[in-house]
Design a protein around this nucleic acid. Sequence first.
DNA 1: ACCTGAACACCGTTCAAGT
DNA 2: ACCTGAACACCGTTCAAGT
Lengths: 226, 226
Amino acid sequence: MSTKIAEEIQARAPLSKERVLGTAVALADQGGIEAASMRKIAQELGVVPMALYKHVSGKEELLDGLIDVVVGEIDAPAGDTDWKTAVRERILSARRALLRHPWASKIMESRTTPTPTVLAYMDSMIGTFRAGGFSVDLTHHAMHAMGSRLMGFTQELFNDRSEAEPAVDTEMWTALAGLYPSIFEICQAVSHDDASVVGPGCDDQFEFEFALDLLLDGLEKLRDRS
Amino acid sequence: MSTKIAEEIQARAPLSKERVLGTAVALADQGGIEAASMRKIAQELGVVPMALYKHVSGKEELLDGLIDVVVGEIDAPAGDTDWKTAVRERILSARRALLRHPWASKIMESRTTPTPTVLAYMDSMIGTFRAGGFSVDLTHHAMHAMGSRLMGFTQELFNDRSEAEPAVDTEMWTALAGLYPSIFEICQAVSHDDASVVGPGCDDQFEFEFALDLLLDGLEKLRDRS
DNA sequence: ACCTGAACACCGTTCAAGT
DNA sequence: ACCTGAACACCGTTCAAGT
């Protein structure tokens, strides 16, 4: 029976940690973070849930592994430029990785201890600052100031933009204008067309780079001052 | 039977939305976010879980309510100062509220749509920028650049600091030095005492204000340039 | 010795049965 | 008409039973 053989092969398939993480990433990419539960990963692999615990000590280690996959996709630092473009390019690469895996930021936020892969990334980033002439202290503050933006986070409030937003009609629009006039003023400026339809929304990439450059420029000035 | 009477009184106690949110906040303050489950809130109130659904449509609305409680604790904007100290003071007030309720940041990160209370807070903050001479566009960028820091977020990676950290011994310390030399260098500078013990750690308040001022100063320069 | 099915202790929420 | 107990569909993980 070929079915039997197929089952045998599947059963004997190594089921390494890589395979577990790989299917977890695939499931999360496809169905969001809650699609990457222990039970669903096991089901996808044609395996009983407990079988995963041979390759991963538990949910925590699985989440750490998922982060490592994403961090592993960040480009290596460009060695032939100044600190500023090196940091900038690397962070933009991190952002691209995060956009490829929208579930990753939520996991990172939930993590409590950095993995060796993340530590290596941070260490490398610190090294770039130091090589750029930043003192130990200023580098320290710089890393804190960059915060999770180092990992490519947009770190905005309510950055859903997922569910095709429920078509703001004129009634809601005028209500907005009355209740929150300052928000209204900005929304109106962002949407180029007339006020009856909500515009194309914000340019996330522009806003990310704006904030990034604001920080980098500020840090550069602090470096030059000392 | 006084017991019966007590039960009757408790049963007849209004069980308003305020009471539900109040006990939820108390439970979360005391036992973290997972202590504020529907079932545990109901148990604390001596009520069947489903009874909560009379005052709260579901878990989502409960979480929104919890955020509103925290945002409600942020001081009103000081009206008699320049935009910079007004923004600064308000954000530091938000940070204080968040430190009082450490569970709140995780909930805010999980939220997808802002509540009216949060919108009002944002609207007020935008108004402060505008009154400070910022153009509509620059104010827009400023709000994005501030991001969740507006709510008092430290938004750092791995800001646990909760579990009394497991006493870094000399062995780990030298391993750190070898694997992550740049991180080691910074840790060494932060901890004033000798290298055998990890020092007092970072001054979170200082780092928060450092990053905040870096952004505010940069924004001020951009405003003056136009 | 190894693997795994059933069970445990949760969770938010539905729904029909009881008053 | 109102309230609520049991049940549903999940979750991560323990543990003992089966091979």
